[in-house]
């Protein structure tokens, strides 16, 4: 595909966002940005299977949860180091996604969607019942684990640096996938799966790889957050609302666009922060997200980026 300039502005902007709380040493700002970075990472990752390949993954948060539990358990029971744990969590999650993908991605998008809806429920019910993983109560760190990282305070900053790095890596990865031959294949599959197969694309393999990649980054994020929180339990790790938010963010920003996912995450977090302080609206979180999604799907299915590039064609090269 042709040369694009998206990363030229997106990367510096992200780096600036990450550095800002570090430079000002502002803990509250750090926490806010922490959540924004998580949203961006989740949104960008989901876009790989949703926007690039055209398969809606409901309940995608399950990979965040799997990565969180796996990494947490390694640190908790086997005292494995943070970075090794979270990366292993990422790989395990990706492997599970790949295998599941081989099973259900060969079918139409709608059937895949149904399968993913079941996934979250299924995993949650499983984990609620397995006692090694703490069951419904979850697991808690012995806080002495943080001593290995220079104490609790330093450990939290470490988590922050890792999250920032992860977000930036995920954006770069998503962008280069999109511009690669693999990405071209994915977009082709999205447009017409049967034609893609006839043209020589190994559709099943490509779809599974996309799905695995989309699971990898959320899983690592899960590990980071579990480490930071010091505890883990099913409803936090497999938070269905986050799954829903991921979809809304991707569609809001513009599915298929890396910049779109980042923008969508930012916009959504901003809207949320405004709404959550309004008295009645805050309990209507779910309903409002649903309404946003409905409006986007009915009237602006290509999201913010689609809207902008329709009226300002020159923006196409910077909003990929």
């Amino acid at each position: 595909m042709q040369k694009g300039y998206t990363l030229f502005w997106l990367l510096p902007a992200l780096i600036a966002l990450v550095i800002y709380p570090i430079v000002t040493n502002n803990v509250m700002l750090r926490e806010t940005v922490f959540l924004i970075l998580l949203s961006i990472t989740l949104s960008i990752s989901l876009n790989i299977i949703l926007g690039f390949t055209g398969y809606v993954s409901f309940g995608h948060i399950v990979y965040y949860g799997i990565g969180a539990y796996f990494a947490f358990y390694l640190m908790y029971a086997y005292k494995v180091s943070l970075i090794v744990s979270i990366v292993l969590g990422g790989l395990v999650s990706a492997a599970i996604a790949f295998v599941l993908g081989q099973a259900v991605l060969s079918l139409r998008g709608a059937i895949f969607a149904i399968a993913t809806i079941g996934v979250n429920e299924a995993v949650k019910s499983l984990i609620n019942n397995i006692s090694i993983l703490g069951g419904a109560m979850g697991l808690y760190f012995d806080f002495s684990i943080y001593d290995n990282y220079g104490g609790a305070l330093k450990a939290i900053w470490l988590s922050y640096y890792l999250m920032g790095t992860l977000t930036i890596l995920s954006v770069i990865a998503a962008y280069y996938i999109k511009k690669s031959k693999f990405g071209l294949g994915l977009f082709s599959i999205r447009e017409d799966q049967d034609a893609s197969a006839v043209l020589g694309i190994k559709t099943k393999l490509y779809k599974s790889l996309a799905y695995a990649t989309s699971a990898f980054f959320p899983a690592i994020a899960g590990g980071i957050f579990a480490f930071k929180a010091g505890n883990i339990e099913p409803s936090g790790a497999f938070n269905l609302v986050k799954s829903i938010e991921m979809i809304v963010m991707v569609m809001l920003g513009g599915y298929g666009s890396v910049a779109g996912s980042a923008l969508g995450a930012l916009f959504y977090e901003k809207i949320k922060s405004i709404l959550l302080v309004m008295p009645y609206v805050k309990d209507l979180h779910l309903a409002v997200s649903g309404l946003i999604l409905l409006i986007i799907v009915q009237f602006a299915p290509s999201g913010i980026v689609g809207f902008l590039t329709k009226y300002f064609k020159n923006l196409r090269k910077v909003l990929e």
Binding site: K181, L184, S188, E191, L199, G200
Partner: peptide, 25 residues
């Protein structure tokens, strides 16, 4: 069966990339 949201050149490149010669981009 056009790949509707891709441009003409992108469509044809798909053909080139995944055909007999397995070209790079």
């Amino acid at each position: 069966k056009p790949l509707s949201e891709l441009t003409v050149i992108e469509n044809v490149m798909v053909g080139a990339c995944f055909g007999k010669k397995n070209y790079n981009l």
